[in-house]
Design a protein around this nucleic acid. Structure first.
Length: 863
DNA sequence: TGGAGGTGCAA
DNA sequence: TATTGCACCTCCA
């Protein structure tokens, strides 16, 4: 099991001394294999629980062995030490083998809500009772049942003795279904997906091609009668403003008497249930008919009595809205992608990397949420992905294309049931509602984008490029005339071979070391220190870095918008409502509107043409207000209610002086303290942040004192921190689903973020991967996200209600919402935006007041 | 060509 | 033990 690297090495040259590199290579390989083994086998909780009952000391001994092995990495760089490490690893594996062998559980079966454990030998009843209690603790909500062997003597140890079905069944599945390597390389196609209950169910699903308007109306009528349908589009491209809708697919479930398609355990189809897919090809219709189809879809999307299930609905809704050419109501949506992201709640696995650096040996791997991933995970059905990328603008579509399109929509009602069950079991209904209701705003922001002055952007790009080039020449000159011989210059840049490259970190480090600065990194703060000490190269390099970065920004913006004769365009972005970590903040990408440099130079490029305006509103100190609400600290709550400046208040408390006596520096330092507390940071980090983010020098002693004073002033915050810290010791059940096991719950460290979003952390090497800082920060950031989402929903509703078709939701940046509209409406827009944002905040953190600052301007710089 | 590593932008 | 996330650049297999 362990790597053969060491053996090979020993046989080759037993007496050769080992270089550091060789040592690291061999050790890395050993450790990699070892920790993969740890991750795979030690994670299984059942033998652990058994050991806890029958011999906790053995378990402690084992954990200690693992710790020791980890520590051995820092030992001497000798062959003997490597041999010793490997010996220790074998010992630990053997030891674990004994623990596993001692555990009587031979098989685990899940039937509905029952977990049946097949035992390989008789077990003392007292021990069994305690074991049951342990299991019950972990497998919350399951009935635990033990099955004893008929003839204990004859019971053969199972082939996988000791390898009990994992709590995370998808791991096993992916192992068993992984084809041998040769299959992957030799036969690229023709790997026939295995027949499974759900794939057969799908194959029996009916598909009807609809060819006229009346037929399509009938389909939508049927959907309204049933009250639920799957909705999917195939389009000729990804951009709703440039591409066209080709196919519309609607999937309608046919329920058996039980009103369910999936059985209660979540494992198999209920007999008698089925679904029918209707497909209509818009290219086979006249322009007028297509318009009519779009209007029928608009009515369907806006019908509050019909649930529309879709995967990544913002895509389909974007096309429907763009085709309709106006803002439309969208009600009763269920997005299976968002649902999947919600129920996985930030869960991840640790997987080994190829990295030799011990710090990066494992990386976090998050579940994917494409339709094919979800269907594979929950239904054991392999969806062909070629359908998605096939040519949807061809004159006639192939039979297969239609079939794939239909399957996508047949699968939706099943996924809906399973994911909805998970949402219910995890009590996340409100959170799901919030996400689904937010879809219309997301669609609008993606279609609208931020106005950009192209002429000004090009001008700035020109001057920045010039400045960057000048700096680059100066830096190359300085480096090459320094007499330093660069060993790290390898590649060719801009067609000039072998020049010093100021963007290359190794090059820069070589230069600095040559001129006598012993630096090991080239981070901003390091360069600033050098620059302050009078190093011209460092000063210029800082400028070069900044210009390079910003040139890249501007280039990407101009590429994205293309040219426009008016000199203005809209820079559009993609939004994700939910990130991997389960906190709930929006992310923006392609281009990222949430990372525009906060300087006038760049923000004023986002300018509106004559007659239009931007209304920009942001929440003031929202995360601190949320912290006040979370902790209920009376001093802080009162301060906000009295509209006091919290940074000054903190500064006064820390400096033991009157609030009027607080100096500017002290207020800056307090900002570092107040923000630091939101993240639960330590004193050293406080010192660094005060220096680099707020330009204030603070000693470590001062930082410690400040922390103490802070918690003395706001005692409830310290209490709340303790409460969050204690979550580490009280894991709670979280429900998952997999086609193998159906629904199953795992006890995990978890936080709940109003209105019910969850974030959970997996176990690794017997410990939770949750950290105090994350437990302290997630609810704060998460509530901020919830407030913003509620605000977006409210604003969209008002825009619809008022019929303001010339006002658009343009963007959001975590605590900021931007509207674009006609200048005449500026004041009303601002009033509406501020009001809705305040009301959204109050929904979550009343009685802590929420303040919103709105600004009217012609560019983003005016705020 | 893609992952890893480093860096920096925003909230 | 300061959080979240995206993007660009270089280096290397």
């Amino acid at each position: 099991m362990l790597s053969t690297a060491l053996k090979d090495f020993a046989e080759q040259q037993p007496y050769r001394t080992i270089s550091d590199t060789e040592f690291r290579d061999i050790a890395a390989s050993l450790y990699n294999d070892f920790f993969v083994w740890v991750a795979e086998s030690v994670l299984d909780p059942v033998p652990r629980l058994w050991a806890e009952v029958t011999g906790p000391s053995a378990l402690g001994q084992f954990d200690q062995m693992i710790d020791e092995i980890e520590a051995l990495q820092d030992g001497p760089r000798t062959k003997e030490h490597l041999t010793y490490i490997e010996h220790k690893m074998r010992q630990a594996q053997k030891f674990w083998g004994e623990i596993v062998a001692d555990c009587p559980v031979r098989k685990q079966v899940t039937v509905k809500n029952r977990r049946i454990f097949h035992l390989g030998r008789p077990v003392d009843s007292g021990v069994l009772t305690r074991f049951r209690a342990k299991l019950a603790d972990v497998l919350d909500g399951a009935d635990i049942e033990f099955v004893f062997p008929q003839n204990p003597e004859k019971v053969q140890p199972s082939r996988n003795q000791g390898k009990i079905s994992s709590l995370f069944p998808e791991d096993e599945e992916s192992e068993t279904h992984k084809p041998p390597k040769s299959m992957l390389t030799e036969s690229k196609e023709e790997t026939v997906a295995p027949k499974t209950p759900w794939s057969e169910w799908l194959d029996q699903g009916e598909i009807e091609i609809v060819t006229d308007l009346e037929g399509f109306r009938a389909v939508v009528n049927e959907a309204s009668k049933v009250g639920i349908c799957g909705l999917d589009l195939e389009t000729t491209g990804l951009d709703p403003l440039a591409a066209k809708i080709r196919l519309v697919q609607i999937g309608i479930p046919k329920y058996p008497g039980s009103k369910r398609l999936v059985d209660e355990a979540g494992k198999s189809p209920v007999p008698g249930g089925s679904a029918k897919a209707y497909v209509i090809d818009l290219f086979a219709l006249s322009a007028d008919e297509r318009k009519e189809i779009v209007e029928i879809l608009v009515a369907l999307v806006g019908d509050p009595n019909v649930i529309k299930i879709g995967h990544n609905l913002s895509f389909d809704l974007g096309f429907i809205r763009a085709s309709a050419g106006r803002r439309i109501p969208m009600r009763n949506l269920f997005d299976t992608m968002l649902a999947s992201q919600l129920v996985w709640a930030g869960f991840f696995k640790m997987e080994p990397t190829t990295s030799k650096n011990s710090k990066y040996r494992f990386k976090e791997v998050y579940p994917k949420h494409r339709l094919s991933d979800c269907v594979d995970r929950h239904l054991n059905v392999k969806l062909d992905k070629t359908g998605q990328t096939s040519d949807w603008s061809a004159e006639t579509l192939s039979h297969d294309q239609i079939l794939y399109a239909a399957k996508d929509v047949l699968v939706l009602p099943i996924l809906y049931e399973i994911l909805f069950d998970l949402i219910r079991r995890n009590e996340m209904e409100e959170a799901a509602r919030l996400e689904f209701d937010c879809l219309p705003s997301v669609v609008e922001m993606e279609i609208t984008g931020m106005p950009l002055n192209l002429t000004a952007t090009k001008a700035l790009l020109d001057s920045l490029t010039r400045e960057r080039d000048e700096l680059e020449i100066k830096l190359i000159g300085m480096a090459e005339s320094s007499g330093c011989e660069f060993k790290t210059i390898k590649d060719v840049r801009k067609g000039v071979p072998g020049r010093f490259n100021p963007a290359s970190i190794p090059n820069v480090l070589e230069y600095f070391n040559h001129v006598g600065h012993s630096v090991t990194d080239t981070r901003d703060e390091t360069l600033q220190d050098l620059a302050r000490a009078g190093d011209e190269f460092a000063r210029l390099l800082l400028g070069f870095r900044e210009k390079t970065k910003r040139v890249a920004f501007l280039v990407s913006w101009l590429e994205k918008t293309g040219d426009d004769p008016n000199g203005y365009a809209h820079l559009r972005s993609s939004y994700r409502q939910l990130g991997d970590k389960g906190v709930g903040r929006f992310t923006s990408s392609d281009v990222n509107l949430q990372q525009i440099p906060r300087t006038k130079e760049y923000r004023e490029l986002f300018e509106v043409p004559e007659g239009r305006c931007l209304v920009i509103a942001d929440y003031s100190a929202i995360e601190l207000r949320i912290m006040a609400w979370l902790s209920g600290d009376p001093t802080m709550v009162t301060a906000f209610q009295n509209r006091q400046d919290l940074h000054r208040l903190t500064a006064a408390a820390v400096g033991r002086k009157d609030i009027d006596q607080v100096s500017k520096d002290e207020r800056q330092a307090s900002k570092a303290i107040n923000f630091g507390l939101i993240y639960g940071c330590g004193a050293q980090r406080l010192v660094d942040s005060a220096k680099y983010d707020y330009g204030v020098d603070m000693s470590l002693t001062e930082a410690n004192r400040a922390k103490k004073a802070f918690f003395a002033t706001y005692p409830k915050i310290e209490e709340w921190h303790q409460k969050q810290r204690s979550l580490m010791d009280s894991p709670v059940p979280h429900w998952f689903h997999h086609h193998n096991t159906g629904y199953y719950s795992v006890k995990l460290v978890s936080v709940t973020i109003p209105p019910g979003r969850k974030r959970v952390w997996p176990w690794f090497k017997g410990k939770t991967l949750a950290r105090f800082t994350m437990l302290a920060n997630s609810p704060d950031q998460g509530i901020g996200a919830s407030i913003l989402k509620r605000a977006l929903i409210r604003v969209y509703d008002r825009l619809l209600e008022y019929g303001w078709d010339d006002v658009y939701l343009a963007a959001n940046v975590h605590d900021e919402i931007i509207l674009e509209g006609p200048m005449e409406k500026a004041e009303t827009m601002k009033e509406m935006l501020e009001k809705e944002m305040v009301l959204a905040g109050a929904e979550f953190i009343d009685p802590v007041p929420v303040e919103v600052e709105g600004n009217i301007g012609t560019s983003w710089a005016e705020k």
